[in-house]
Design a protein around this nucleic acid. Structure first.
Lengths: 129, 129, 129, 129
DNA sequence: GTGGTCTAGACCACT
DNA sequence: GTGGTCTAGACCACT
């Protein structure tokens, strides 16, 4: 369910984080569900275990998943997600940056809004991106 | 007119690129206008000349500015901007990623759209962000 | 009487050790009293028997409890507790470490001392923490 | 200035974190000061660069130090330290645990308080522990 | 020069 | 079985 793009400038552990979050939001992986172990996932997606481990640790720090010692890693109930003002500002900044690039490329605000709606729909319906 | 944040996760040369593009879109710097030299700008914003140079090179590669040997660096007329399908896809991806993070933080699509409109307004009116 | 927190960073067997020691110090479990068997306790607190077994072994090693083959596990008379210089040093170190973290968090020495008195009172009065 | 104990149960990266915090609290390393680079420190204390890097990243997350890309790592002005309720509770818990062990070892509350004062004095006077 | 990421593989504590 | 730590060493982006 997770696909790594080795040529992407986005670090592999970030790709894992993003895709797991997407799977959770889509409901493909639900609260309380056990995730594949570090070794399993690393074997499946052909990535070093350390890299998967780094992704899991970061997701735990963000309150998305939790680790029970010796038992495995589980998806948290999502109301636990911790949002800080810094995270909010970072989202605003990255949106701003995207809009700037889009303006440069001649993409209208309307087009961007349509894409937002499309993607939100995908998330809600659990469709693949 | 350019302000660098050393602590930002965005590389300094990227900050220069973004802010120059923003200034151009806002009309604060117009087509054909001469930009400060690498040395001038690096002295003004207290940044290593290599870093400014890297920003200028990237902007030139993107068709935003052009360097005339011995004469200086000038803003291109903007219809020249080259939009490739890859750039378009990259914009879609970064928008998608922002929406994903926003969803996680409980930010609605409506909120994101409002922010887009706000920012576009800023660009058009030439107001500072 | 023992409550395990699976999410705690403290290993489960350590939690058992701590809580048993606390119960003994509070007088809720007295010298010579028989403890539940490994199987009983593991069934009560929903923990793997190996984990309870590990806790009991460590408590025995520390001279807190003793196992009589075929008869069960009993609380030792507590003057038997063996304090080595290493244990003393370890206590000093962990106190030092706690004070360091507290200083960082802006917690005063007075506050720490108040907490110590509070907790000692709890132990003596047998109140629950 | 940093000494690693390979036999300690405390992870090496944690030892680095603790000792750097101690050096900062003692004023041996002051706000704005540049720390040794990852490579330098790793060579000095004979530890793998990855391990030092992990310590630095965690300290940055805690707001103790900050990394300027390509320039190095610097001590933050300490009012920036972020204290969460979870951290406070964790400090209380580790104090409680220490008091419990101390009680078991026959160490009085008074003794513990004396040690606290001693260590705080060391921190303030910049004396070595 | 700086730190960040990644692989490969070992070892360990915990359940 | 589970995840966490660590070494050794490569490569990369940024200043």
């Amino acid at each position: 369910m997770i696909v790594i793009n080795e040529r992407s400038p986005i670090p592999i552990y970030e790709q894992i984080i993003q895709q797991l979050k997407e799977l959770i939001l889509k409901g493909a992986v639900t609260s309380g569900e056990k995730l594949p172990s570090v070794r399993e996932l690393s074997a499946t997606i052909l990535v070093n275990p350390n890299t998967v481990s780094k992704a899991y640790q970061e997701l735990e720090r963000q309150g998305v998943i939790e680790t029970l010692r010796g038992k495995g890693t589980y998806v948290c109930s999502q109301q636990a997600a911790k949002i800080t003002p810094e995270m909010l500002e970072q989202i605003r900044q990255s949106l701003k940056q995207t809009v700037l690039e889009a303006s440069y490329a001649g993409i209208s605000g309307e087009q961007l809004k349509t894409w937002i709606d499309q993607y939100l729909l995908e998330l809600r319906s659990g469709t693949n991106a």
